[in-house]
Design a protein around this nucleic acid. Structure first.
Lengths: 159, 159
DNA sequence: TATTGTTATACTCTATAACTATA
DNA sequence: TATAGTTATAGAGTATAACAATA
């Protein structure tokens, strides 16, 4: 017996806890998987490049969607307008993003990455893809691609 | 043309933003999918039963792992010891969980759900499974099961 | 000395709402 | 009136570290 004397069924120190009841819940498995992916992010990109994962995502979305507006980003990331102002501010202060006034509607801004921002997000994405490939070893490339597609489908179920 | 006069490529109001660069990142797709699953949780369980999603998870893990310790929970959920004390406190105050002193090691606690806690977590799990089934309509049951298995594999890549 | 759990404290991130300036 | 964005403030959640009790 590998058990120590006082251990109950849920008290084994090795391995993971029993989760029969939670096993079929997408939300629970998502949260557990995110512990791993966030660790990969901060290990391969976040700490080396001093980027919060939201900052990286905002930067990448602006790069992929030049002239996008803060309102559009807020909707995509499901955060408030005030929040987006703060994240964009941080990127602007680091000269990774610039704000441009709209000519036709003076309430609106258009966001663009600077050359510095583009270089950073390109490097970050390369390191992140490599980090995920190296550290999420339980999935084959085909499984990774399948997982991404399934997650994408889940994401379409937003309001 | 469906575009308004001043819109750039990233400024279309309908549909999702372009994410070519982010598309293959498990971490990004996970975060996007989680927006949907958290909405399902708070709509079907969190608000109706006044439970934070961490509270639900802690309660469910204690139910599935009777006599588990706070330290074990902290490891499983990747949160600090001080944090687990707080979450367990909330559940104890609502009489959903009880602490029991270990007989062999007086530093250790064993956690159990109360009958009230068991009833709540059972109801919550039923409502959550139903909520996911009803609202994550983009996935077939088989795809849901596949997604869960892939996420499970990702979660094994911790540490 | 190391470990379990608690407490105190500060920090990060988020939500709410009032505000401006435009439309 | 409605919308885009800003600002101020409060709240939720987390991490850090010092602590007490026990091994």
């Amino acid at each position: 017996m590998a058990r120590k004397k006082d251990e109950g069924a849920g008290d084994l120190d090795q391995g993971r806890m029993d989760e029969a009841m939670l096993h079929d819940l997408v939300g629970y498995q998502l949260a557990q998987a995110q512990i791993a992916t966030l660790a990969v992010f901060y290990g391969s990109v976040g700490r080396p490049l001093d980027l919060r994962h939201v900052e990286y995502t905002v930067l990448a979305l602006i790069k992929e969607n030049p002239a996008c507006t803060p309102a559009r980003l807020a909707k995509e990331l499901a955060v408030t307008a005030g929040n987006i102002t703060m994240w964009v501010d941080r990127l602007v202060q680091r000269e990774l993003v610039r704000r441009e006034a709209s000519v036709s509607d003076r309430r609106v801004q258009h966001l663009h990455v600077t050359p510095k921002g583009e270089a950073l997000v390109t490097a970050a994405t390369r390191q992140l893809l490599e980090g995920e490939r190296k550290r999420i070893t339980a999935l084959s490339p085909a499984e990774r691609a399948l997982l991404v597609e399934l997650l994408h489908k889940v994401a379409t179920c937003r309001d």
